[in-house]
Design a protein around this nucleic acid. Structure first.
Lengths: 123, 123
DNA sequence: AGCATCTGCTTGGTATACTTAGCACACCTC
DNA sequence: GAGGTGTGCTAAGTATACCAAGCAGATGCT
């Protein structure tokens, strides 16, 4: 151990690294194995686990997938999801559902949104 | 100039850009305004909207926040959340959300439902 | 006309995410 | 002992996300 690891790791990302490492060890995978599955390099995985880098969302998803945990769990661990977003459907329900519906084109989304908002009074 | 934009934009990210742009215009924000709120540069926002770059999750979250939409919505649009998590929302999501929205009258419900179904092809 | 002030976009540079090659230590097998 | 294979980590480079400065067209005002 080089005496002061804390120098580079900034809080949230460090704990994300700890989380990944613990999940990896829980799955009995070596860094090289996990890196292979997640299609990233093992040195990079090393840095990520030690909190030296902030992995992109794509990498995060890939790691989550390799560890067989949900991407959502990963993101909330990374502090990228505002924890209680999808729970309260009562309020933003319709707008949210419209936005994430993959079958709607952008134009259709906008149209529906306008109509809905005109119905509920824009607020 | 505009004849071959397709050279750089690769599918998923391009549609994400379209999504952001439509949401921005829906909110009546200029690029500079949104960029200011989201704390990114306006040229970068321009590139993102045109699908030239794949924004990091942090930027994505920041933009979502600025547009007052949930980070989850953003990620699912970016294809970063395995649809398994948000799927139950998206499939019956719109219809269900419309039905349980207390602010909609019965007539309004039916109108929205008709429009939605015409968009998605009747199910 | 001319100047101001929007709009989105291009250019060129910096910061950082990510990779390829290789080090150092531990545990084997010969 | 020397070689082989496993572990995680370091160093140096490449790719790309991101930013600051500035351009070109549209609108408006005097």
């Amino acid at each position: 151990m080089t005496d002061d690891d804390k120098t580079a790791a900034s809080g949230a990302w460090r704990s994300l690294g700890d989380f990944i490492r613990s999940q990896r060890e829980l799955a009995n995978l070596s860094m090289r194995q996990l890196a292979e599955i997640a299609k990233i390099s093992n040195p990079y995985l090393s840095q990520v686990e030690r909190g030296l880098y902030k992995p992109s969302a794509e990498v995060l998803k890939s790691i989550a997938n390799a560890l067989q945990i949900s991407a959502e769990t990963m993101y909330s661990q990374a502090g990228l999801l505002d924890s209680s977003t999808s729970r309260e459907n009562s309020h933003h329900g319709v707008e949210h559902a419209i936005k994430i519906d993959p079958r709607l084109s952008v134009d259709q989304e906008e149209a529906l949104m306008r109509i809905y908002r005109s119905f509920v009074g824009g607020g």
